[in-house]
């Protein structure tokens, strides 16, 4: 047992890698993991070449884990949703939103419904969905929860918990789609990028599920970087990363993000999201 303990303690030290010159980044798990790997594996390679340092992508299991890793300095760069970005930057001094996709300036969410719900598509949310079952995506998702919750509350005058017979959190957009398609939930909220892509790929049974409402536009995903990277990786590192992101013109890589290009972003772009989150009660 003693030998075992020694080995164990020794090993813990061995496990601490020399990490000073590795840039680690992550992304919120808003979609299926294999899709994330497809997208961020090549992204890591691109950044590594552009920045000339080792870059590593780490997948995480939840939005909160992505924010925590960023906050805990285990990752220095992250692809966040609007809400997770706001949460993360609030916890890391001088951290910045670096860049967003062109499409992220005006993002939207669809409410989708199973045909058995008998809901009609329209310019306003169909009031007959009161009393049905409803699923969000992740609990911390901007497009899968915050925005739809905001508009549902506005429409019905009370929180979704009271409006619906049951409110679920599927975990991500792909699952929301599957749960509504199978009729497990009558209505769900899904971001338009995932819906459009799955539709184009022929993965949606359009006889079973359809769009019934589209939210107004809001700002969404962005790359955020910690405030202390310049001290760690050398002066001007932040701008170097921003430059690399804006210069990205690899069509396949951009397509995997479903973005046409990355454009500069700043923290103030997300002020509206912060206020909305406070209103909904998701941040203190």
């Amino acid at each position: 047992m003693k030998a075992f303990l020694c080995a164990f303690v020794l090993n813990l030290f061995l496990l601490l890698p020399a990490s000073a010159q590795v840039l680690v980044f992550t992304a919120i798990p808003d979609e299926d993991e294999s899709k994330l790997q497809e997208r961020f594996g090549p992204m890591g390679e691109y950044l590594s070449k552009a920045l000339n340092i080792e870059v590593r992508y780490v997948p995480v299991k939840s939005y909160a884990a992505a924010v925590s890793a960023f906050r805990n300095d285990q990752v220095q760069l992250a692809w966040f949703g609007a809400l997770s970005g706001v949460q993360a930057r609030a916890r890391v001094p001088n951290s910045q939103a670096l860049a967003q996709g062109t499409e992220d300036q005006a993002f939207w969410t669809y409410l989708i419904a199973h045909k058995s719900a008998g809901l009609e598509a329209g310019d306003v949310i169909d009031e007959r969905m009161r009393g049905m079952t409803f699923t969000f995506g992740s609990k911390s998702s901007t497009s899968g929860r915050l925005i739809p919750e905001f508009y549902l509350t506005e429409r019905f005058g009370e929180s979704p918990n009271k409006v619906f017979e049951r409110v679920g959190y599927s975990g991500n957009h792909s699952r929301t789609l599957r749960l509504v398609e199978s009729g497990s939930y009558a209505v769900g909220a899904i971001n338009y990028v995932v819906w459009d892509r799955e539709l184009a790929a022929g993965n949606i049974d359009t006889d079973a599920v359809k769009i019934i409402w589209k939210t107004p536009a809001y700002p969404n995903y962005q790359w955020s970087i910690r405030g202390d990277v310049d001290a760690r990786f050398g002066a001007g590192f932040t701008e170097k990363v921003r430059g690399a992101l804006l210069a990205l013109d690899d069509k396949t890589l951009l397509k995997s993000f479903a973005r046409s290009a990355f454009i500069p972003a700043q923290n103030s772009d997300y002020e509206p999201i912060k206020r909305t989150a406070q209103e909904v009660g998701l941040i203190d």
């Binding site: 164990f8 496990l15 601490l16 890698p17 990490s19």
Partner: peptide, 12 residues
């Protein structure tokens, strides 16, 4: 066993 746990990310 302790040698096969993988590396993970450094502790801060």
């Amino acid at each position: 066993a302790p040698f096969f746990l993988g590396t993970g990310l450094p502790i801060v």
